[in-house]
């Protein structure tokens, strides 16, 4: 589904991603972990098409298409979804109007008729239940004045509405209380299908108890320096990153 090859990217001339290789197949869950500042969000942003980042080398192919060649909206329409680490507030844009516009533009791209108001509201109700989000939040401007946890929950709600094939969750667990973590993780699990895939960026093993990954990767200084199965996450939880940093720095030296 997603095939990343030697991907390099920089911002303001500063190289951040220094050759990422990653293969994600339909039905899989990949976890990406790694110390602060290692480039996890940068990778997510580059995949979603944030324009401040300059791709300086490598490729990313999504369902056979050159992902890096597509405008951000077209990536979304092709089925890529990024749940932001820090969702921003957009005062004045109503949550409902935003969702409706998004869904109908995605549908148009896929050659589907726009949803009428009734079917739209029906889907909204259904998905609201899935992530247990409150109607009052949706009556407000997009993310405006939402608490940290509410914003994260709203990201997963949007994901549920848009039904992406590849979801990238950037630290969706941070800022969630214990109950919300379980609810959000359950939501993600319920949305899991054999034909979609998920990349979860996280610092904590706890999320991976709920969303069980098939693979765990450690990103360090812009490279994936170690990959393994879910046991790797447990080991990191116990030992921290020092041993991995040492290994990686030694190899380079």
């Amino acid at each position: 589904m997603l095939s990343i090859n030697n991907l390099q990217a920089s911002i303001n001339g500063e190289p951040i991603l220094k050759g990422i290789n990653l293969e994600v197949k339909a039905g899989e869950v990949h976890a990406i972990m790694g110390p602060n500042g290692s480039g996890k969000s940068t990778l997510a942003s580059v995949l979603a098409g944030r324009e401040e980042y300059e791709v300086t080398g490598g490729t990313a192919t999504f369902k056979g298409k050159d992902l890096l060649d597509l405008a951000p909206e077209d990536r979304a329409r092709e089925g890529v979804f990024l749940a932001f680490q820090y969702p921003i507030e957009i005062p004045g844009v109503s949550s409902t109007n935003f969702l409706k516009t998004a869904i109908n533009q995605v549908r148009e791209y896929r050659g589907q008729a726009p949803l009428d108001a009734v079917s739209f509201l029906k889907i909204v109700k259904e998905k609201m239940k899935l992530v247990e989000i409150d109607q009052s939040l949706l009556n407000r401007s997009l993310n405006e004045g939402f608490s940290g946890g509410e914003k994260k929950r709203n990201e997963i709600f949007q994901m549920a509405m848009l039904e992406p094939t590849l979801s990238i969750l950037d630290e969706t667990d941070s800022g969630l209380d214990i109950d919300a973590l379980r609810i959000v993780a359950n939501g993600v699990n319920k949305l899991k299908r054999p034909d979609n895939a998920t990349i979860v960026v996280t610092h904590y093993q706890r999320l991976l108890d709920y969303i069980v990954p098939d693979f765990v990767h450690v990103l360090y200084k812009g490279r994936i320096v170690k990959s393994g199965t879910k046991e790797l996450a447990l080991e990191l939880e116990e030992r921290g990153y020092d041993w991995i940093k040492e290994e990686a720095d030694n190899i380079k030296a």
Binding site: G49, E51, E73, A76, I90, F98, T101, A102, Y109, L162
Partner: peptide, 9 residues
């Protein structure tokens, strides 16, 4: 960018 990332032109 946020809006575009959700499929809005």
């Amino acid at each position: 960018f946020y809006l575009r990332a959700r499929g809005i032109s």
